[in-house]
Write a protein that binds this DNA or RNA. Structure first.
Lengths: 149, 149
DNA sequence: GGTGTATAATTCAGATATGAACAATCGAAA
DNA sequence: TTTCGATTGTTCATATCTGAATTATACACC
């Protein structure tokens, strides 16, 4: 229960590994759930921004909010468009820009997917007490902030 | 600091999001570091198993230890082989099987990459005290075990 | 021994991600 | 106004991952 110095190096590696492992576990679980709703973590993530932004929003803004590269958004919107969940529209103010809008079908799929996602999240967190959940969240905040440098 | 019931749903979603975020942060950081050593998280993960197993080991065993599908191992070993870090050898006991061995160059790159990875891990965990690290590890264990169902 | 089922790895198609190179457009400065 | 540098989205190459279909081989049972 204490922290001798010899075991420190191993412990850090193990902690880091557990963090990655937990992330992958969650990602995989959510993807599985969302797949049965015709969605994925990536797709629902983009749809969320389209649904929250009332009105069309440029692909560049999407890339920024998703913290990813623009070419990724291009492809994601391609697939969303192919699925009929989003549409591209020209930007009246800047002919370089392209805006994306969520379609009615997209909104429906998003709402349904979000419910399923929340349900899955509850199941994932179920083994932790509310206090433990709060502790974990606080520690992760601390970790993320510290690592964000 | 307490847990009223109304905010619960949001809290769970946020917690889950932080877990994923932390995982991606670590993955990205390690990939950046390893890239400067000609490696990646995926590659060093496979090399680790090759380095630890004294002697060739089948691709199926690798898939099992990496907790991924076999087609992934096929491709990863392809790239490792192209980099000169691993080699395929026939399995004398079963002509269906193929074994992989680490090359000398692979072992060198692995050792150097591992040092860099450990250094990066230490930097990532630096903002947490040893006690916080232990708490976080314990909570993640609990979470992973519970979510593993 | 022949037959059928199980297993090993590969191949293929597709999703998700990055980064470099490119085309179109914008905006500011000469 | 013309020109030049910055920005926008796309395309391309590549890495990583999955799952389905395929091929070759092993093994057990009649």
């Amino acid at each position: 229960m204490n922290n001798r110095n010899g075991a420190q190096a191993v412990q850090v590696s193990e902690l880091i590994f557990k963090i990655v492992q937990a992330g992958h576990l969650v990602d995989g679980r959510l993807d599985t759930i969302l797949e049965s709703h015709g969605l994925s973590v990536a797709k629902i993530g983009l749809l969320r921004h389209l649904a929250e932004a009332e009105g069309p929003i440029t692909l560049g803004q999407l890339a920024e909010r998703l913290a990813c590269v623009k070419s990724n958004v291009t492809q994601l919107v391609d697939r969303l468009e192919a699925d009929g969940l989003a549409r591209r529209t020209p930007d009246p103010e800047d002919r370089r820009s392209i805006r994306a809008v969520i379609t009615d079908k997209g909104r429906q799929m998003f709402e349904a997917g979000l419910q399923a996602q929340h349900e899955a999240e509850r199941r994932l967190a179920r083994s932790l007490t509310p206090d433990e959940q709060a502790q974990l969240a606080a520690l992760l905040d601390h970790f993320i902030e510290g690592a964000g440098r």
